[in-house]
């Protein structure tokens, strides 16, 4: 795996040397040569958390780089290489970089098979629910993330996915079918739950109202025991003139049909004017190995520019957990 990381690092360095910086507002869709097909982008965010007990920590959350290749043909490449938590500061401990690690978030090839059928091979975000595939700090309204969107299923899968979209009445129908072909490669990250043998599907009806149904079969692969789960998830999102209402609910079952964990959140966003928004969220989560957790979030976000967002939020609820902090949080994120 170290060799894989080295290969990726060299690829990124190579790409940095040859790529044109991509700008979201100014795409170049003309037929390009091989070299011109490369684009580079990414995002980064930093934030501070004042915990209820008086402790404070601040960190540069990530530096994420996208390298894409697309020359207008049927084959496309996408990768996202991320340096997670490159710098952390904790009250009493000072600065440290020991939490940092390199993560290959996404690394895949897309191939168009027909008008409504595409093939993706490589490492991709698990298409379960809305948040997981849109988790980048500049794209979500809060720094805190609902537990149900990260601890019930693998966040990424190394495998194969068939996907496509077609008109459906006056809306669109989108589908994704995927299966893991190679097991999760990093089992040493303290905060992630290892999964294996994942397969699933997602169906969406998109338009003014967006509805999603996710089905998943996966094995939670802990050191002492491996447990197979089946999961069903429902989600929706509607936006209108700056207002937004979204929700996700996931229910997991053991293979014998017993409750294997569940969770949900509902989030509302209201425009305040001058690109300021108010955010409110309620969430709960329960997983057999962790017990239950409830959170409420009140916050505000300021879109400084279309690609920069400043967030301030207060997270309350029952006892604080490492993976679900509470207190006052302020953060800044930029998409480039």
């Amino acid at each position: 795996m170290r060799n894989m990381h080295l290969l990726i690092a060299v690829s990124v360095a190579f790409a940095l040397g040859i790529c044109k910086i991509a700008v979201a507002e100014e795409p170049d869709l003309n037929e390009a040569s091989f070299i011109d097909g490369f684009k580079l982008g990414g995002y980064t965010s930093a934030g501070i958390n004042l915990h209820p007990g008086g402790k404070t920590d601040a960190k540069l959350n990530e530096l994420s780089l996208f390298v894409t290749w697309d020359n207008g043909g049927r084959l496309r490449f996408f990768s996202e290489i991320e340096i997670e938590k490159p710098l952390t500061w904790r009250s009493g401990d000072g600065f440290t970089g020991k939490d940092s690690y390199l993560d290959i978030e996404r690394f895949y090839l897309d191939f168009n098979l027909s008008e409504k059928l595409n093939l993706r091979t490589g490492r991709f975000l698990t298409p379960t629910g809305r948040w997981n595939v849109m988790h980048a700090a500049p794209l979500v309204w809060t720094w805190s993330r609902p537990l149900v969107t990260s601890r019930m299923f693998p966040e990424a899968v190394n495998g194969v996915m068939f996907y496509g979209a077609a008109p459906f009445s006056d809306k669109a129908f989108e589908y994704k079918l995927f299966i893991e072909a190679m097991q999760e490669r990093s089992r040493d990250r303290g905060d992630s739950i290892p999964y294996k043998d994942t397969k699933g599907m997602r169906f969406e009806i998109t338009g003014k109202f967006n509805w999603g149904l996710s089905l998943l079969d996966t094995v939670e692969d802990l050191d002492l025991v491996s447990t197979r789960y089946r999961m069903v998830g429902l989600d929706f999102m509607v936006q209108h003139k700056g207002w937004e209402l979204s929700a996700e609910a996931l229910q997991r079952y053991y293979t014998n049909g017993n409750d294997g964990g569940s969770g949900a959140y509902v989030q509302a966003v209201a425009p305040l004017g001058n690109q300021w928004f108010a955010i409110g969220r309620l969430e709960n989560f329960q997983r057999p190995a962790e017990g239950s957790s409830e959170r409420w979030v009140l916050g505000t976000a300021w879109r400084v520019t279309p690609s920069q967002v400043l967030k301030l939020e207060y997270v309350g609820g029952d006892r604080e957990r490492v993976e679900s902090p509470k207190g006052v949080m302020a953060s800044f994120a930029i998409l480039f």
């Binding site: 991509a22 979201a24 507002e25 100014e26 795409p27 170049d28 869709l29 982008g41 995002y43 996208f66 894409t68 697309d70 496309r76 996408f78 595939v133 849109m134 980048a136 500049p138 794209l139 338009g207 003014k208 936006q239 209108h240 003139k241 700056g242 279309p306 690609s307 998409l335």
Partner: peptide, 25 residues
């Protein structure tokens, strides 16, 4: 698209996150 261009910003940012640029302008 059922929405004015100024309400589509988040969508295009999200699509960019997945490697697809918005239409040429």
């Amino acid at each position: 698209l059922d929405s004015p261009p100024e309400d589509q910003l988040e969508y295009w940012n999200a699509l960019y996150f997945h490697g697809t640029p918005p239409p040429h302008v």
